[in-house]
Amino acid sequence: MKRGLLWFGLAGLVLAGQAAAKSHFVIVGGLGGEARYAKQWSESVDGLNETCRKTAGDDALVHVLKGKAATKEAIEAVFAGLRRETAPSDIVSVFLIGHGSYDGHEYRFNIPGRDLTAAEIKGLLDSLPAKDQLIAITTSSSGASVEELKADRRIVITATKSAGERTVTVFAEHWVEALRDAEADTNKDEVITALEAFTYADKKVQDFYALDKRMATEHARLEGELAASFTLTRLGSALDAASDPKLRPLLERRGGIERRIAELKNRKDAMETAAYTSELQKLLVELARTQAEIDTASGRDEQ
């Protein structure tokens, strides 16, 4: 409930605020071990790359390392570049795909050469000027990294709840889908937030095990208060509209209506059903009309 309210309260502001910020992505495919996993990780990395490039709007903002190239040195070099290129208002999303392990002391992301430990990943993330960060580690044992990686404005997503879940995970493939499937955009604002993507991937993983009557060997985790407002990817033309200055008054009006709807929903339990429905319909019609104006003004009314 709190997360939902937070989103409704912040949606307009976040979109406006993030419009000027850049989204940077780092995608790393670790060691596959067996050929089938190598292929699987490679496909996941490619899928994320494609989606992130569309969202970033600039290929230079998406950094991809996979296979033999995904060494510790190469990853450090990417972060060195990000230290120079990112502004404090930017947002950075890091996806680590592959196998992970826990040696009883620390989590390790398995890559060619020396593995990357949770402490080293933390060091890399802490070093960036951009503090709005998301790191998604889709490996086995990834839950062991959460405590190390947690930070104020950082969202941490892992495929497993703890170090003990050591079996190969299926989270990655659903995470890739979560970033590009419109079904993940549950509030239909054409933006997929970290919370929406996580909820989608988590449900798909649960369905996978439940449908096949298998014992679930992975339970995903999400840490970070800002997940509901953290824009991961955009569908359609949401960003274009948000970045057009001439639409700003309409967008502000829309944001106001959205807040009123959120407030109304907050009062739902205390209201008579008929009164609530009537008020809701009034606001929704107002919002629909405002959206229609936005679409007309931005030349997208046929969409």
Binding site: N187, I261, L280
Partner: peptide
Amino acid sequence: LEAAPNYRPAQK
């Protein structure tokens, strides 16, 4: 629309 106020096809 209660679940997704900005759902354009539903708005239309």
